[in-house]
């Protein structure tokens, strides 16, 4: 026998189910009055620094249908490349930019959309700069554990070419699944759960 390490096990994930919008965006799904507004509904105000951008997209299943009951959250650095988080030790992020947003996919066409700012570059663990990116987290009925992925920008070809995460993708054509379509300030980022165009999801 040896000493016990004594670590606990992470609580197992379970699907967010069909009614995740009740819990996380009650105003959106017609339950007003509990919260003043849905958390994460707005990311920018008049004083937020940086270039305003719009990101919209869909989460598409293996039959090509957009999910209408999904919830998407994003997390990103501010325009100066700092995260609004206690774990950010490099400086203080823009106080007018939370860096986090939440959007349900719509019941009509399954589209999510965010009004945000173009993130600055942040360093990889070895100090090299990563290309500007937005972290995505997707949950829905039928998804047993939340899916992590990233969106990169189509107009950042040279930064993308030296990005350490994109470089880790063995099948080069799959790296394109992480690059949005469109041009500044409006980007489209469709997430494919399965099939030819399956998005690269991260175990991170």
């Amino acid at each position: 026998m040896v000493q016990e390490l004594g670590y606990l096990k992470e609580t197992a994930s379970q699907t967010a189910g069909p009614y995740v919008h009740i819990g996380l965006t009650p105003n959106f799904c017609g339950i007003p009055g509990i919260y003043k507004s849905d958390l994460g509904a707005s990311m920018v105000n008049d004083k937020t620094l940086g270039q305003r951008i719009a990101v919209k997209g869909r989460v598409i299943d293996g039959a090509g249908m957009p999910l209408k009951d999904a919830l998407v959250e994003i997390w990103q650095a501010d325009a100066g490349g700092l995260y609004n988080s206690p774990a950010e030790m490099r400086g203080t992020a823009d106080p007018n930019f939370p860096g986090w947003g939440r959007c349900p996919t719509s019941a009509e066409d399954g589209v999510f959309s965010f009004e945000t700012v173009k993130p600055g570059r942040v360093p990889f663990n070895d100090g090299r700069l990563m290309a500007p990116h937005i972290t995505f987290w997707i949950v829905a009925r039928g998804i047993n554990i939340g899916l992590h992925t990233r969106m990169y920008f189509p107009d950042e070809a040279s930064a993308n070419a030296e990005d350490p995460l994109l470089a880790r993708i063995e099948h080069r054509h799959r790296a394109e699944t992480l690059v949005a379509a469109g041009t500044a300030p409006s980007y489209t980022f469709d997430i494919h759960l399965q099939g030819e165009k399956e998005t690269v999801f991260l175990d991170i």
């Binding site: 299943d61 293996g62 039959a63 249908m65 999910l67 997390w75 990103q76 650095a77 995260y83 774990a87 950010e88 942040v122 360093p123 990889f124 663990n125 990563m130 990116h133 972290t135 829905a140 009925r141 039928g142 998804i143 047993n144 899916l147 992590h148 990233r150 995460l165 880790r168 993708i169 799959r174 759960l193 399965q194 399956e198 998005t199 690269v200 999801f201 991260l202 175990d203 991170i204």
Partner: peptide
């Protein structure tokens, strides 16, 4: 129809996570 079928890309956490 909602389960990714390809291997996840494993990577040590960066500051983004």
């Amino acid at each position: 129809l909602r389960s990714p079928q390809k291997a996840l890309l494993s990577l040590d956490n960066t500051i983004s996570e």
